[in-house]
Design a protein around this nucleic acid. Structure first.
Length: 154
DNA sequence: GCCAACGTTGGC
DNA sequence: GCCAACGTTGGC
C-alpha cells in the first residue's frame, strides 16, 4: 500500500467533482516525474490525498484511492482536447493517467499553512519544498498517519 | 497581479 | 550538450 498527494485546481476539477463522479480519470498530467509515478508506481488500492492548489485556501480536502493503475492518457491524442500533444500516439503513448475513486472529504481542510507549521514533522514532503511544482508526489506512511492525526486534532 | 522557482524549448 | 529565453505553476 502506497500513499500519494495529487494536486488539482478546484476551479478546474475539485473534490466535489470527484465526489459526484465516484470514479474518474486523473488526466492532463504533462510532467515527466508525475507521469513516471502514475505509469510505473501507482497501484490499485493505493490511497491519495486530494489537494486543492492555486486557490484562496490551498490544502488537503479529501481522500481518494487508485481505482486503475497507469494507462495511456488518450486526451493527448485528441486534437480537440486542451491536453492534446501531437508527439503522443496510440502506438507510442507519451502521457499516462490513472483512475481514482472518491473515498471521502476531510472533516476540515488541512491547509498548506498548517502543514508548513509542522514542517519539522513532515520533513521530506515534496509539497513543502520551496518552489515545488510537482503535481503528484509520494507521501510516506508516517506522513500520511501524521496528517490524518491533524484532521482529528483540529 | 506579482513574482520566484523551475521545466522546456531551441539556437548554436 | 550548453544555456538563455520563455512559459507555467502556484503561493501570496
Amino acid at each position: 500500500m502506497q500513499y500519494w498527494l495529487m494536486k488539482s485546481e478546484p476551479g478546474v476539477y475539485g473534490i466535489d467533482d470527484l465526489a459526484a463522479a465516484g470514479v474518474d480519470y486523473w488526466d492532463g498530467v504533462r510532467n515527466y516525474q508525475a507521469r513516471n509515478m502514475m505509469r510505473d508506481q501507482m497501484q490499485v488500492g493505493d490511497q491519495a490525498f486530494f489537494y486543492h492548489s492555486n486557490t484562496k485556501q490551498p490544502g488537503i480536502v479529501g481522500i481518494m484511492s487508485i481505482a486503475r493503475a497507469g494507462y495511456p492518457d488518450q486526451t493527448a491524442w485528441d486534437p480537440e482536447s486542451e491536453y492534446y500533444d501531437p508527439r503522443s500516439s496510440p502506438d507510442n503513448p507519451r502521457w499516462y493517467r490513472v483512475d481514482v475513486r472518491y473515498e471521502r472529504h476531510m472533516a476540515r481542510t488541512i491547509t498548506l499553512a498548517e502543514l508548513k507549521a509542522h514542517a519539522d514533522r513532515l520533513e521530506g514532503l515534496a509539497l513543502l519544498r520551496k518552489g515545488n511544482r510537482l503535481s503528484i508526489m509520494p507521501v510516506t506512511p508516517d506522513q500520511w498517519a501524521f496528517i490524518l492525526s491533524l484532521e482529528a486534532a483540529g
